[in-house]
Write a protein that binds this DNA or RNA. Structure first.
Lengths: 229, 229
DNA sequence: TCCAATTGTTTGAGTGCTTAAACAATATCC
DNA sequence: GGATATTGTTTAAGCACTCAAACAATTGGA
Protein backbone atom coordinates (compact mmCIF):
# COMPACT_ATOMS: atom_id res chain seq x y z
CA UNK A 1 0.00 0.00 0.00
CA UNK A 2 1.73 3.14 -1.22
CA UNK A 3 1.15 6.68 -0.04
CA UNK A 4 1.41 8.23 -3.49
CA UNK A 5 0.55 11.86 -3.39
CA UNK A 6 -2.95 12.36 -4.77
CA UNK A 7 -3.45 14.64 -7.72
CA UNK A 8 -4.94 18.06 -7.09
CA UNK A 9 -8.09 16.91 -8.87
CA UNK A 10 -8.46 13.84 -6.69
CA UNK A 11 -8.06 16.04 -3.63
CA UNK A 12 -10.75 18.34 -4.96
CA UNK A 13 -13.14 15.42 -5.36
CA UNK A 14 -12.49 14.13 -1.86
CA UNK A 15 -12.89 17.55 -0.30
CA UNK A 16 -16.13 18.16 -2.14
CA UNK A 17 -17.51 14.76 -1.20
CA UNK A 18 -16.65 15.42 2.44
CA UNK A 19 -18.44 18.76 2.42
CA UNK A 20 -21.52 17.47 0.60
CA UNK A 21 -21.83 14.28 2.62
CA UNK A 22 -22.33 16.42 5.70
CA UNK A 23 -25.57 17.80 4.21
CA UNK A 24 -28.98 16.18 4.33
CA UNK A 25 -28.98 15.43 0.62
CA UNK A 26 -25.66 13.65 0.91
CA UNK A 27 -23.06 13.69 -1.85
CA UNK A 28 -24.80 13.10 -5.15
CA UNK A 29 -23.16 12.87 -8.55
CA UNK A 30 -24.91 15.94 -9.89
CA UNK A 31 -24.06 18.05 -6.88
CA UNK A 32 -20.40 17.07 -7.04
CA UNK A 33 -20.37 17.89 -10.74
CA UNK A 34 -21.88 21.31 -10.09
CA UNK A 35 -19.53 22.08 -7.21
CA UNK A 36 -16.45 21.25 -9.28
CA UNK A 37 -17.72 22.75 -12.51
CA UNK A 38 -17.55 19.56 -14.52
CA UNK A 39 -20.11 17.39 -16.28
CA UNK A 40 -21.70 14.39 -14.52
CA UNK A 41 -19.87 11.75 -16.60
CA UNK A 42 -16.59 13.16 -15.36
CA UNK A 43 -17.74 12.57 -11.80
CA UNK A 44 -18.80 9.01 -12.58
CA UNK A 45 -15.33 8.28 -13.91
CA UNK A 46 -13.64 9.95 -10.95
CA UNK A 47 -15.81 8.01 -8.51
CA UNK A 48 -14.85 4.77 -10.18
CA UNK A 49 -11.17 5.59 -9.93
CA UNK A 50 -11.41 6.75 -6.32
CA UNK A 51 -13.29 3.58 -5.42
CA UNK A 52 -10.50 1.49 -6.92
CA UNK A 53 -8.03 3.41 -4.80
CA UNK A 54 -10.07 2.60 -1.72
CA UNK A 55 -10.88 6.22 -0.97
CA UNK A 56 -14.63 6.35 -1.50
CA UNK A 57 -17.47 3.95 -0.85
CA UNK A 58 -19.73 3.97 -3.81
CA UNK A 59 -22.23 1.81 -5.63
CA UNK A 60 -23.61 3.05 -8.96
CA UNK A 61 -26.82 5.05 -8.54
CA UNK A 62 -26.24 4.99 -4.81
CA UNK A 63 -24.92 7.45 -2.29
CA UNK A 64 -21.25 8.39 -2.15
CA UNK A 65 -19.37 8.05 1.11
CA UNK A 66 -15.75 8.24 2.17
CA UNK A 67 -13.73 5.32 3.46
CA UNK A 68 -11.68 5.99 6.62
CA UNK A 69 -8.61 6.49 4.46
CA UNK A 70 -10.50 8.77 2.08
CA UNK A 71 -11.99 10.74 4.94
CA UNK A 72 -8.55 11.19 6.45
CA UNK A 73 -7.19 12.62 3.21
CA UNK A 74 -10.27 14.77 2.66
CA UNK A 75 -9.95 16.24 6.13
CA UNK A 76 -6.28 16.96 5.48
CA UNK A 77 -7.15 18.95 2.39
CA UNK A 78 -10.06 20.71 4.06
CA UNK A 79 -7.78 21.59 6.96
CA UNK A 80 -5.21 23.16 4.66
CA UNK A 81 -8.01 25.02 2.93
CA UNK A 82 -9.41 26.63 6.06
CA UNK A 83 -5.94 27.34 7.45
CA UNK A 84 -5.06 29.29 4.31
CA UNK A 85 -8.39 31.08 4.16
CA UNK A 86 -8.14 32.11 7.79
CA UNK A 87 -4.66 33.50 7.20
CA UNK A 88 -5.82 35.43 4.16
CA UNK A 89 -8.85 36.94 5.88
CA UNK A 90 -7.71 37.34 9.49
CA UNK A 91 -4.06 38.19 8.94
CA UNK A 92 -3.75 39.56 5.42
CA UNK A 93 -7.12 41.34 5.66
CA UNK A 94 -8.53 39.98 2.43
CA UNK A 95 -12.23 39.64 1.69
CA UNK A 96 -13.94 36.32 2.23
CA UNK A 97 -14.36 35.93 -1.49
CA UNK A 98 -10.77 36.73 -2.46
CA UNK A 99 -9.50 34.50 0.33
CA UNK A 100 -11.69 31.60 -0.70
CA UNK A 101 -10.59 31.91 -4.29
CA UNK A 102 -6.90 32.01 -3.47
CA UNK A 103 -7.15 29.18 -0.93
CA UNK A 104 -8.83 26.93 -3.49
CA UNK A 105 -5.78 26.86 -5.67
CA UNK A 106 -3.04 26.87 -3.06
CA UNK A 107 -4.46 24.27 -0.69
CA UNK A 108 -2.95 21.40 -2.67
CA UNK A 109 0.64 22.53 -2.30
CA UNK A 110 0.80 24.33 1.03
CA UNK A 111 3.26 22.48 3.26
CA UNK A 112 2.62 21.84 6.97
CA UNK A 113 5.45 24.17 7.94
CA UNK A 114 4.06 27.02 5.86
CA UNK A 115 0.60 26.60 7.36
CA UNK A 116 2.01 26.37 10.85
CA UNK A 117 4.07 29.53 10.50
CA UNK A 118 1.17 31.40 8.97
CA UNK A 119 -1.05 30.50 11.91
CA UNK A 120 1.69 31.45 14.34
CA UNK A 121 2.24 34.80 12.66
CA UNK A 122 -1.46 35.53 12.98
CA UNK A 123 -1.32 34.70 16.67
CA UNK A 124 1.72 36.92 17.03
CA UNK A 125 -0.04 39.94 15.57
CA UNK A 126 -3.22 39.38 17.58
CA UNK A 127 -1.50 38.81 20.91
CA UNK A 128 0.52 42.01 20.77
CA UNK A 129 -1.82 44.86 21.75
CA UNK A 130 -2.24 47.54 19.13
CA UNK A 131 -0.28 45.71 16.50
CA UNK A 132 -3.25 44.58 14.45
CA UNK A 133 -4.50 48.15 14.34
CA UNK A 134 -1.17 49.41 13.09
CA UNK A 135 -1.02 46.69 10.49
CA UNK A 136 -4.53 47.47 9.34
CA UNK A 137 -3.64 51.14 9.13
CA UNK A 138 -0.59 50.33 7.04
CA UNK A 139 -2.74 48.33 4.65
CA UNK A 140 -5.06 51.26 4.25
CA UNK A 141 -2.38 53.84 3.59
CA UNK A 142 -0.43 51.48 1.37
CA UNK A 143 -3.31 50.98 -1.01
CA UNK A 144 -2.03 52.29 -4.26
CA UNK A 145 1.55 52.67 -3.11
CA UNK A 146 2.26 49.06 -3.78
CA UNK A 147 4.70 46.79 -5.49
CA UNK A 148 6.03 48.68 -8.49
CA UNK A 149 5.55 46.57 -11.57
CA UNK A 150 2.90 44.20 -10.21
CA UNK A 151 0.77 43.22 -13.14
CA UNK A 152 -2.57 41.45 -13.06
CA UNK A 153 -5.96 41.45 -14.69
CA UNK A 154 -8.28 44.35 -13.95
CA UNK A 155 -10.42 41.90 -12.01
CA UNK A 156 -7.60 41.44 -9.53
CA UNK A 157 -6.80 45.13 -9.06
CA UNK A 158 -7.86 46.02 -5.51
CA UNK A 159 -10.71 48.56 -5.41
CA UNK A 160 -9.45 52.12 -5.22
CA UNK A 161 -6.01 51.34 -6.57
CA UNK A 162 -5.03 52.76 -9.93
CA UNK A 163 -3.59 50.74 -12.77
CA UNK A 164 -2.34 51.36 -16.28
CA UNK A 165 -4.07 49.40 -19.01
CA UNK A 166 -1.55 47.12 -20.73
CA UNK A 167 -3.76 45.16 -23.11
CA UNK A 168 -7.44 44.58 -23.82
CA UNK A 169 -8.47 41.16 -25.07
CA UNK A 170 -12.27 41.12 -25.22
CA UNK A 171 -14.90 40.36 -27.82
CA UNK A 172 -15.53 42.99 -30.49
CA UNK A 173 -18.89 44.16 -29.18
CA UNK A 174 -17.51 45.06 -25.78
CA UNK A 175 -14.22 46.24 -27.19
CA UNK A 176 -16.00 48.89 -29.21
CA UNK A 177 -17.76 50.18 -26.11
CA UNK A 178 -14.51 50.16 -24.15
CA UNK A 179 -12.63 52.05 -26.85
CA UNK A 180 -15.40 54.66 -26.91
CA UNK A 181 -15.01 55.05 -23.18
CA UNK A 182 -11.27 55.42 -23.59
CA UNK A 183 -10.16 52.05 -22.24
CA UNK A 184 -7.05 51.66 -24.38
CA UNK A 185 -3.49 50.65 -23.54
CA UNK A 186 -1.66 53.28 -21.52
CA UNK A 187 -4.67 54.85 -19.84
CA UNK A 188 -5.18 54.96 -16.05
CA UNK A 189 -8.00 52.83 -14.74
CA UNK A 190 -9.39 51.77 -11.36
CA UNK A 191 -12.03 49.53 -9.87
CA UNK A 192 -14.45 51.69 -7.91
CA UNK A 193 -16.44 49.04 -6.16
CA UNK A 194 -17.67 45.49 -6.54
CA UNK A 195 -21.39 44.71 -6.41
CA UNK A 196 -22.54 42.79 -3.33
CA UNK A 197 -22.74 39.56 -5.30
CA UNK A 198 -19.36 40.19 -6.87
CA UNK A 199 -20.67 40.97 -10.33
CA UNK A 200 -20.75 43.38 -12.07
CA UNK A 201 -17.97 45.70 -10.97
CA UNK A 202 -17.88 49.48 -11.29
CA UNK A 203 -14.85 50.78 -13.15
CA UNK A 204 -13.56 54.33 -13.40
CA UNK A 205 -11.56 55.59 -16.34
CA UNK A 206 -10.87 59.17 -17.50
CA UNK A 207 -13.65 60.36 -15.19
CA UNK A 208 -16.17 58.02 -16.76
CA UNK A 209 -17.79 55.32 -14.73
CA UNK A 210 -18.74 52.11 -16.47
CA UNK A 211 -19.71 48.68 -15.27
CA UNK A 212 -18.54 45.39 -16.63
CA UNK A 213 -18.66 41.71 -15.79
CA UNK A 214 -15.80 40.08 -13.93
CA UNK A 215 -15.25 37.77 -16.90
CA UNK A 216 -14.64 40.85 -19.02
CA UNK A 217 -12.40 42.52 -16.45
CA UNK A 218 -10.34 39.33 -16.36
CA UNK A 219 -9.35 39.96 -19.99
CA UNK A 220 -7.93 43.43 -19.34
CA UNK A 221 -4.30 43.43 -18.16
CA UNK A 222 -3.17 46.27 -15.90
CA UNK A 223 0.00 47.31 -14.15
CA UNK A 224 -0.52 48.61 -10.61
CA UNK A 225 0.29 52.30 -10.07
CA UNK A 226 0.78 54.41 -6.95
CA UNK A 227 -2.09 56.62 -5.88
CA UNK A 228 -5.74 56.13 -5.07
CA UNK A 229 -8.67 57.33 -7.13
CA UNK B 1 -5.91 35.24 -29.44
CA UNK B 2 -7.14 34.03 -26.11
CA UNK B 3 -5.48 34.48 -22.75
CA UNK B 4 -6.28 30.97 -21.56
CA UNK B 5 -4.58 30.30 -18.27
CA UNK B 6 -1.57 28.12 -18.84
CA UNK B 7 -1.35 24.79 -17.08
CA UNK B 8 0.98 24.50 -14.12
CA UNK B 9 3.19 22.25 -16.21
CA UNK B 10 3.44 24.75 -19.05
CA UNK B 11 4.36 27.44 -16.52
CA UNK B 12 7.06 25.15 -15.16
CA UNK B 13 8.53 24.69 -18.61
CA UNK B 14 8.55 28.41 -19.35
CA UNK B 15 10.10 29.26 -15.99
CA UNK B 16 12.80 26.63 -16.44
CA UNK B 17 13.59 27.77 -19.98
CA UNK B 18 13.87 31.35 -18.75
CA UNK B 19 16.29 30.35 -16.03
CA UNK B 20 18.40 28.11 -18.24
CA UNK B 21 18.53 30.49 -21.18
CA UNK B 22 20.32 32.97 -18.94
CA UNK B 23 23.25 30.56 -18.59
CA UNK B 24 26.12 30.12 -21.02
CA UNK B 25 24.96 26.68 -22.11
CA UNK B 26 21.54 28.03 -22.93
CA UNK B 27 18.36 26.01 -22.50
CA UNK B 28 18.98 22.52 -23.85
CA UNK B 29 16.48 19.69 -23.99
CA UNK B 30 18.44 17.49 -21.63
CA UNK B 31 18.94 20.24 -19.08
CA UNK B 32 15.25 21.11 -19.09
CA UNK B 33 14.41 17.44 -18.65
CA UNK B 34 16.77 17.14 -15.72
CA UNK B 35 15.52 20.34 -14.07
CA UNK B 36 11.92 19.21 -14.27
CA UNK B 37 12.58 15.57 -13.49
CA UNK B 38 11.15 14.20 -16.69
CA UNK B 39 12.58 12.26 -19.64
CA UNK B 40 13.87 14.07 -22.75
CA UNK B 41 10.99 12.96 -25.01
CA UNK B 42 8.59 14.69 -22.65
CA UNK B 43 10.48 17.93 -23.19
CA UNK B 44 10.44 17.49 -26.97
CA UNK B 45 6.67 17.14 -26.87
CA UNK B 46 6.27 20.11 -24.54
CA UNK B 47 8.49 22.26 -26.73
CA UNK B 48 6.42 21.40 -29.77
CA UNK B 49 3.23 22.38 -27.97
CA UNK B 50 4.69 25.59 -26.57
CA UNK B 51 5.97 26.53 -30.02
CA UNK B 52 2.47 26.07 -31.45
CA UNK B 53 1.17 28.38 -28.74
CA UNK B 54 3.71 30.99 -29.76
CA UNK B 55 5.50 30.93 -26.42
CA UNK B 56 8.91 29.53 -27.34
CA UNK B 57 11.18 29.86 -30.31
CA UNK B 58 12.53 26.49 -31.18
CA UNK B 59 13.91 24.51 -34.08
CA UNK B 60 14.60 20.79 -33.57
CA UNK B 61 18.15 20.09 -32.44
CA UNK B 62 18.60 23.82 -31.96
CA UNK B 63 18.59 26.15 -29.01
CA UNK B 64 15.39 26.99 -27.18
CA UNK B 65 14.41 30.61 -26.67
CA UNK B 66 11.35 32.46 -25.44
CA UNK B 67 9.13 34.64 -27.58
CA UNK B 68 8.20 38.05 -26.09
CA UNK B 69 4.86 36.59 -25.03
CA UNK B 70 6.52 33.51 -23.56
CA UNK B 71 9.12 35.59 -21.77
CA UNK B 72 6.39 37.76 -20.28
CA UNK B 73 4.58 34.75 -18.89
CA UNK B 74 7.80 33.14 -17.68
CA UNK B 75 8.75 36.30 -15.83
CA UNK B 76 5.30 36.42 -14.26
CA UNK B 77 5.75 32.94 -12.88
CA UNK B 78 9.31 33.57 -11.77
CA UNK B 79 8.13 36.74 -10.05
CA UNK B 80 5.48 34.86 -8.11
CA UNK B 81 8.06 32.27 -7.22
CA UNK B 82 10.56 34.69 -5.72
CA UNK B 83 7.83 36.70 -3.99
CA UNK B 84 6.64 33.58 -2.22
CA UNK B 85 10.12 32.39 -1.38
CA UNK B 86 11.05 35.76 0.05
CA UNK B 87 7.97 35.77 2.23
CA UNK B 88 8.70 32.26 3.46
CA UNK B 89 12.34 32.99 4.31
CA UNK B 90 12.30 36.65 5.35
CA UNK B 91 8.93 36.82 7.06
CA UNK B 92 8.03 33.28 8.09
CA UNK B 93 11.64 32.47 8.95
CA UNK B 94 11.81 29.27 6.97
CA UNK B 95 15.01 27.75 5.61
CA UNK B 96 16.01 28.40 2.01
CA UNK B 97 15.34 24.79 1.16
CA UNK B 98 11.89 24.56 2.77
CA UNK B 99 10.94 27.90 1.23
CA UNK B 100 12.06 26.87 -2.22
CA UNK B 101 10.16 23.62 -2.00
CA UNK B 102 6.94 25.25 -0.86
CA UNK B 103 7.20 28.08 -3.37
CA UNK B 104 7.59 25.62 -6.25
CA UNK B 105 4.14 24.22 -5.72
CA UNK B 106 2.25 27.35 -4.73
CA UNK B 107 3.61 29.73 -7.36
CA UNK B 108 1.03 28.66 -9.92
CA UNK B 109 -1.98 29.61 -7.86
CA UNK B 110 -0.86 32.58 -5.77
CA UNK B 111 -2.99 35.57 -6.68
CA UNK B 112 -1.58 39.10 -7.09
CA UNK B 113 -3.46 40.30 -4.01
CA UNK B 114 -2.04 37.53 -1.86
CA UNK B 115 1.51 38.24 -3.01
CA UNK B 116 1.05 41.97 -2.52
CA UNK B 117 -0.26 41.58 1.02
CA UNK B 118 2.48 39.14 1.91
CA UNK B 119 5.13 41.59 0.76
CA UNK B 120 3.41 44.40 2.63
CA UNK B 121 3.21 42.38 5.81
CA UNK B 122 6.93 41.72 5.58
CA UNK B 123 7.56 45.45 5.18
CA UNK B 124 5.31 46.12 8.16
CA UNK B 125 7.27 43.83 10.44
CA UNK B 126 10.64 45.13 9.27
CA UNK B 127 9.77 48.82 9.51
CA UNK B 128 8.56 48.61 13.09
CA UNK B 129 11.66 48.55 15.31
CA UNK B 130 11.99 45.51 17.50
CA UNK B 131 9.06 43.75 16.00
CA UNK B 132 11.04 41.29 13.95
CA UNK B 133 13.01 40.30 17.05
CA UNK B 134 9.83 39.67 18.99
CA UNK B 135 8.40 37.64 16.17
CA UNK B 136 11.57 35.61 15.88
CA UNK B 137 11.52 35.03 19.62
CA UNK B 138 7.94 33.84 19.44
CA UNK B 139 8.85 31.38 16.71
CA UNK B 140 11.60 29.98 18.89
CA UNK B 141 9.49 29.54 21.99
CA UNK B 142 6.54 28.28 20.03
CA UNK B 143 8.46 25.39 18.56
CA UNK B 144 6.64 22.35 19.82
CA UNK B 145 3.67 24.23 21.21
CA UNK B 146 2.05 24.34 17.87
CA UNK B 147 -1.18 23.61 16.16
CA UNK B 148 -2.75 20.70 17.99
CA UNK B 149 -3.63 18.02 15.51
CA UNK B 150 -1.31 19.07 12.70
CA UNK B 151 -0.26 15.93 10.91
CA UNK B 152 2.52 15.50 8.40
CA UNK B 153 5.27 13.16 7.38
CA UNK B 154 8.27 12.87 9.67
CA UNK B 155 10.25 14.63 6.96
CA UNK B 156 8.15 17.75 7.47
CA UNK B 157 8.30 17.80 11.25
CA UNK B 158 10.42 20.84 12.20
CA UNK B 159 13.68 19.84 13.93
CA UNK B 160 13.30 19.74 17.70
CA UNK B 161 9.55 19.38 17.68
CA UNK B 162 8.06 16.15 18.98
CA UNK B 163 5.52 14.08 17.10
CA UNK B 164 3.56 10.91 17.67
CA UNK B 165 4.04 8.21 15.08
CA UNK B 166 0.75 7.50 13.35
CA UNK B 167 1.79 5.01 10.69
CA UNK B 168 4.93 3.55 9.16
CA UNK B 169 4.85 2.66 5.50
CA UNK B 170 8.35 1.63 4.48
CA UNK B 171 10.01 -1.35 2.84
CA UNK B 172 10.45 -4.47 4.96
CA UNK B 173 14.21 -4.16 5.40
CA UNK B 174 14.00 -0.71 6.95
CA UNK B 175 10.78 -1.52 8.75
CA UNK B 176 12.51 -4.29 10.67
CA UNK B 177 15.23 -1.93 11.80
CA UNK B 178 12.68 0.71 12.75
CA UNK B 179 10.60 -1.75 14.77
CA UNK B 180 13.75 -2.85 16.62
CA UNK B 181 14.43 0.77 17.45
CA UNK B 182 10.87 1.15 18.67
CA UNK B 183 9.47 3.24 15.84
CA UNK B 184 5.91 1.99 16.01
CA UNK B 185 2.56 3.80 16.00
CA UNK B 186 1.93 5.74 19.18
CA UNK B 187 5.54 6.41 20.12
CA UNK B 188 7.05 9.90 20.46
CA UNK B 189 9.61 10.84 17.83
CA UNK B 190 11.57 13.91 16.80
CA UNK B 191 13.96 15.10 14.13
CA UNK B 192 17.20 16.07 15.81
CA UNK B 193 18.98 17.70 12.93
CA UNK B 194 19.29 17.61 9.17
CA UNK B 195 22.63 16.99 7.50
CA UNK B 196 24.11 19.98 5.64
CA UNK B 197 23.08 18.53 2.31
CA UNK B 198 19.61 17.71 3.58
CA UNK B 199 20.12 13.96 3.68
CA UNK B 200 20.25 11.90 5.83
CA UNK B 201 18.42 13.24 8.87
CA UNK B 202 19.08 12.35 12.51
CA UNK B 203 16.01 11.10 14.34
CA UNK B 204 15.50 10.60 18.05
CA UNK B 205 13.12 8.04 19.47
CA UNK B 206 12.92 6.53 22.97
CA UNK B 207 16.39 7.90 23.67
CA UNK B 208 17.88 6.19 20.64
CA UNK B 209 19.34 8.18 17.83
CA UNK B 210 19.09 6.80 14.34
CA UNK B 211 19.58 8.27 10.92
CA UNK B 212 17.42 7.74 7.88
CA UNK B 213 16.97 9.09 4.40
CA UNK B 214 14.44 11.79 3.67
CA UNK B 215 12.64 9.44 1.31
CA UNK B 216 12.15 7.07 4.22
CA UNK B 217 11.09 9.82 6.64
CA UNK B 218 8.50 10.85 4.08
CA UNK B 219 6.75 7.50 4.60
CA UNK B 220 6.32 7.92 8.35
CA UNK B 221 3.22 9.89 9.37
CA UNK B 222 3.36 11.86 12.59
CA UNK B 223 1.05 14.13 14.56
CA UNK B 224 2.75 17.21 16.04
CA UNK B 225 2.90 17.34 19.83
CA UNK B 226 3.73 20.11 22.32
CA UNK B 227 7.18 20.09 23.87
CA UNK B 228 10.72 20.14 22.57
CA UNK B 229 13.17 17.27 22.78
C1' DT C 1 -49.55 1.10 -11.13
C1' DC C 2 -47.37 3.01 -14.84
C1' DC C 3 -45.60 6.85 -17.30
C1' DA C 4 -42.95 10.95 -17.75
C1' DA C 5 -39.21 13.70 -15.68
C1' DT C 6 -35.11 13.58 -13.42
C1' DT C 7 -30.85 11.77 -12.45
C1' DG C 8 -26.90 8.86 -13.30
C1' DT C 9 -23.92 5.82 -16.21
C1' DT C 10 -21.68 4.04 -20.42
C1' DT C 11 -19.57 4.82 -24.70
C1' DG C 12 -16.60 6.96 -27.78
C1' DA C 13 -13.55 10.48 -28.41
C1' DG C 14 -10.10 14.08 -27.50
C1' DT C 15 -6.38 16.64 -24.84
C1' DG C 16 -2.33 16.95 -21.94
C1' DC C 17 1.47 14.77 -19.95
C1' DT C 18 4.40 11.01 -19.48
C1' DT C 19 7.47 6.97 -20.74
C1' DA C 20 10.48 3.14 -23.19
C1' DA C 21 12.27 1.85 -27.33
C1' DA C 22 13.84 2.87 -31.71
C1' DC C 23 15.80 6.05 -34.57
C1' DA C 24 18.30 10.44 -36.26
C1' DA C 25 21.34 14.27 -35.79
C1' DT C 26 25.26 16.46 -33.72
C1' DA C 27 29.65 16.49 -31.43
C1' DT C 28 34.02 14.48 -30.31
C1' DC C 29 38.05 12.10 -30.88
C1' DC C 30 41.70 9.81 -33.37
C1' DG D 1 37.51 12.40 -42.61
C1' DG D 2 35.31 8.83 -40.55
C1' DA D 3 34.06 6.02 -36.41
C1' DT D 4 32.09 6.54 -32.05
C1' DA D 5 29.78 8.83 -28.26
C1' DT D 6 26.46 12.07 -26.96
C1' DT D 7 22.33 14.28 -27.46
C1' DG D 8 17.74 14.87 -29.30
C1' DT D 9 13.49 13.29 -31.73
C1' DT D 10 9.88 10.13 -33.27
C1' DT D 11 6.88 6.43 -32.41
C1' DA D 12 3.71 3.72 -29.87
C1' DA D 13 1.55 3.35 -25.80
C1' DG D 14 -0.62 4.35 -21.22
C1' DC D 15 -2.84 7.16 -17.63
C1' DA D 16 -5.68 11.03 -15.82
C1' DC D 17 -9.12 14.05 -16.91
C1' DT D 18 -12.69 15.87 -19.66
C1' DC D 19 -16.95 16.07 -22.65
C1' DA D 20 -21.25 15.10 -25.82
C1' DA D 21 -24.33 11.73 -27.02
C1' DA D 22 -26.66 7.66 -26.11
C1' DC D 23 -28.52 4.82 -22.82
C1' DA D 24 -30.29 3.09 -18.11
C1' DA D 25 -32.11 3.58 -13.54
C1' DT D 26 -34.79 6.03 -10.20
C1' DT D 27 -38.25 9.09 -8.67
C1' DG D 28 -42.55 11.34 -8.40
C1' DG D 29 -46.67 12.22 -9.82
C1' DA D 30 -51.41 11.13 -11.99
Amino acid sequence: MKIERLSAKAEDYLETILRLSETLRGARTGDIAEALNVQPPTVSAALKSLTEQGLVDYTPYGAVGLTPKGRQLAEDVAGRHVALRRFFTDTLGMSQEDAEHAACGMEHDATPLVLDRMALLGDFLRTHPGMMEKWKAMRETARGERAPGVESSLKELPPGVRGVVMSVDVADSLRKRLVEMGVTPGVLIAVERVAPLGDPIAVEVRGYRLSMRKAEAARIRVKWRPGLI
